[in-house]
Design a protein around this nucleic acid. Structure first.
Length: 281
DNA sequence: GTGATAACCTGCTCGC
DNA sequence: TGCGAGCAGGTTATCA
């Protein structure tokens, strides 16, 4: 899941989750999901996001202090989704084995509702931390500016890129230059801006183009409700349609929409990468 | 410290 | 039809 998909989930959660209290919780027996159990007692005050991380801000009533702020942090990995529905009697007696068969990795109960994290590939993460303390989440702690927030500027992008000698695609995926991009939107933004994913450095002028392409690619993905290649579902269970509007990602061998020459498919940093050798220099 | 690669996990698609 | 290989919206650990 990349920024547009996570942003859509956050927007939908914001409408219905604020004010709810977590009365009990269950998790898959994996260190990736176990922190879900610690969140019992949290009253949700706000839903925020940084990059691909969903930040569920809560207040927890303590014996000695009132309203200690904690955050329930969810990362959906490559195949995760969150959903909310009414609790049924069957929900209270279901076995861990039955949950595993449905790929449910964590569950949070509210007064009469249940939120479930479904994650087929188990690449997602759940954290429970004191508000703002991201020391145990290096990718979030070290993340650059969120791609759709005001502090992500062409200058910040250029300065981030000049700090490393890695190829630009790997840098953009690393979340340090800018937070929220994944394989799809990196390929799309590099194609839009005419920059080869193999490059290690770019000029400020190219950084300006790339900045604009990143923001526009993400906003277009948002308008289409996100990209559903296989597993992605919104918080309300619908699919995105952006997969029908991709201009570069996943089109290896097909003609480039700018020059008509076939798009090249390579492996870069272990990830499938599509680009145009003719247009992207 | 930096960069490249493997590993984690499961399901789907494709070729034989 | 059945089987194995390869691949997939990501991140982290390990090694050179």
């Amino acid at each position: 899941m990349e920024l547009p998909e996570v942003e859509i989930v956050c927007r939908q959660m914001r409408k219905v989750m604020v004010g709810k209290e977590i009365t009990s919780a269950w998790s898959h027996n994996s260190k990736r999901f176990l922190p879900a159990k610690k969140s019992v007692g949290g009253v949700i005050s706000e839903i925020d996001r940084h990059g691909k991380y969903i930040l569920v801000k809560t207040n927890v009533k303590m014996l000695t202090k009132i309203n200690e702020p904690y955050e329930l942090i969810c990362h959906l990995g490559m195949s995760g989704s969150l959903s909310l529905r009414k609790v049924t009697p069957a929900d209270l007696n279901i076995s861990p084995l039955a949950l595993a068969k449905k790929y449910i990795r964590a569950r949070w109960f509210f007064s009469d509702e249940i939120m479930e994290l479904r994650d087929v590939r188990r690449f997602g993460w759940v954290f429970w931390v004191k508000a703002g303390d991201y020391s145990q989440i290096p990718t979030l702690r070290d993340a650059g500016p969120d791609a759709l927030k005001p502090d992500f500027t062409p200058k910040a992008l250029y300065e981030g890129i000049t700090k490393s000698r890695q190829n630009i695609k790997t840098q953009l995926l690393g979340q340090k230059c800018v937070a929220g991009l994944g394989n799809i939107y990196v390929d799309e933004a590099l194609w839009e801006s005419g920059i080869s994913p193999l490059r290690t450095q770019i000029s400020q002028a190219k950084a300006n183009l790339l900045h604009n392409a990143i923001v526009e690619s993400l906003k277009t993905g948002l308008r289409h409700g996100g990209t559903t290649l296989r597993d992605y579902r919104t918080f309300t269970g619908t699919k995105g349609t952006h997969q029908d509007h991709l201009r570069c990602y996943g089109r290896g061998g097909e003609p480039c929409l700018k020059c008509q020459k076939p798009l090249t498919q390579i492996k870069l940093g272990g990830r499938g990468t599509t680009y145009c050798k003719n247009c992207q220099k």
